Amino acid sequence: MSGLYLGLMSGTSIDGIDAVIAEFEAGRLAKLHAAHHHDYPPPLRARLIELSLDQPGISMREFCTLDVDIGLSFAAAAREVISRSGIPVGAITAIGSHGQTLFHDGPRGLTLQLGDHNRIAAATGITTVADFRRIDLALGGQGAPLVPAFHHAMFADFREPRCVLNLGGIANITVLPGAGIDGVIGFDTGPANGLMDEWMRVCSGLAFDAEGAFAARGSADEELIAALLSDPYFARPAPKSTGRDYFRLDWVRSRYPRIDALRTEDVQASLAAVTARSVASAIKEAAPAVARLIVCGGGVANTLLLRLIGEALPGVVIESSSQHGLAPEWIEATAFAWLAMRRIEGKSGNLPAVTGASHLSPLGCVVLPPG
């Protein structure tokens, strides 16, 4: 079956919506026909970042308004990528929309993604699959990470042990021990771009640290690093998942109250080191025989961070996912196109060894376009 599917994704960095149109054959990616990044309106993005970090109480009116506004932004991203592609709407089998995560507590079975998928289906005229995480939670899983199943479909045609690292707002890994699905594991390792971006906004007003240049000006503080890496999350066994609501600046300040006594660039260097060391430690523990690390997500552009990870993993080949057929910035949106395809075909999308769910299951709710 397979065919053309449209994937929509906005990650925990909340930097906008990635939209792709992907063609699948026999369940594997055959071609990426189009890709587009759609920015959130600045006031909406600012409010989403605030809510994802602090979770203040909001009115039901604002909650419902946000759900609609995010859904309309996702619909706009879908229409734009369709327009750019020249592909007829009727040729696209379905949209897979992840929505915008505002809260995730996998161990307690709680997650919240906004972005009304009814609005997406109505605005595009295309069947829309969304709300991917909650059936896995209902089956006793953590609802995350969900992309490892796609990582296996995309990168597992090999004989060497490999690991896929996604550097988004949160870092997560997928361990691929061989071509078969048995033995595939994955989990969130801890903070990545989200924590560093938050510090950049506080200390400089910038949205992110381009190429890690600000961190490169500083010197990592080993006392701060030790205080952060002593958090119990890093030693917790998989399955495990987390979010920016946990790994935020309040978390840093609670574990190291003297942070404001340090130079701002030294703090940034330390946060980069925490990400690199926690990633490397997780890989050494979960995949000691790994020979190749395939990196995707926005963190691929942070050259300092990649250098630190490489120094912590001597002997491991580190390379971008683009060297394996798909640019790092489009991996997750393509994954949700793939998950939509799996749902339409009635096939499983989760991996119980990754999420902790009791069994395999198709993921997501299906909304048919009206009329």
Results as ranks from 00 to 15, higher is better:
Met1Phe: 07
Ile17Tyr: 07
Val20Ser: 03
Leu29Gly: 09
His37Lys: 15
Pro42Ile: 01
Pro43Phe: 04
Leu48Asn: 14
Glu50Leu: 14
Ser52Met: 14
Leu53Glu: 14
Asp54Lys: 13
Ser59Met: 04
Arg61His: 13
Ser73Pro: 04
Ala78Pro: 00
Gly86Arg: 09
Ile87Asp: 06
Thr93Lys: 15
His98Phe: 05
Gly99Trp: 09
Leu102Tyr: 09
Pro107Tyr: 00
Leu114Ala: 13
Asp116Thr: 11
His117Leu: 12
Arg119Thr: 11
Thr124Arg: 04
Gly125Glu: 05
Thr128Tyr: 08
Val129Phe: 08
Phe132Leu: 04
Arg133Gly: 08
Gly140Ala: 03
Ala144Cys: 07
Met154Gly: 01
Phe158His: 15
Arg159Val: 13
Glu160Thr: 10
Glu160His: 10
Ile170Phe: 06
Asn172Tyr: 10
Ile185Val: 15
Asn193Gln: 02
Val202Thr: 07
Ala210Cys: 13
Ala213Asp: 12
Ala213Cys: 11
Ala215Lys: 08
Ala215Ile: 06
Asp221Asn: 15
Ala227His: 05
Ala238Lys: 07
Asp245Gly: 15
Phe247Thr: 05
Arg248Cys: 13
Arg248Trp: 09
Arg253Trp: 08
Arg253Ser: 07
Ser254Gln: 14
Asp260Leu: 14
Ala261Lys: 14
Leu262Ala: 09
Leu262Ser: 07
Asp266Arg: 04
Ser270Pro: 07
Thr275Ser: 13
Glu285Met: 14
Pro288Trp: 11
Ala291Tyr: 05
Leu293Trp: 03
Cys296Lys: 05
Gly299Ala: 07
Asn302Lys: 02
Thr303Ile: 11
Leu304Trp: 03
Leu304Ser: 02
Ile309Leu: 06
Glu311Pro: 10
Ala312Thr: 03
Leu313Ala: 04
Gly315Arg: 08
Val316Gly: 01
Trp338Ser: 02
Trp338Cys: 03
Trp338Leu: 00
Gly346Leu: 10
Lys347His: 10
Leu351Trp: 14
Val354Gln: 11
Leu363His: 05
Leu363Phe: 06
Leu368Lys: 13
Pro369Ile: 04
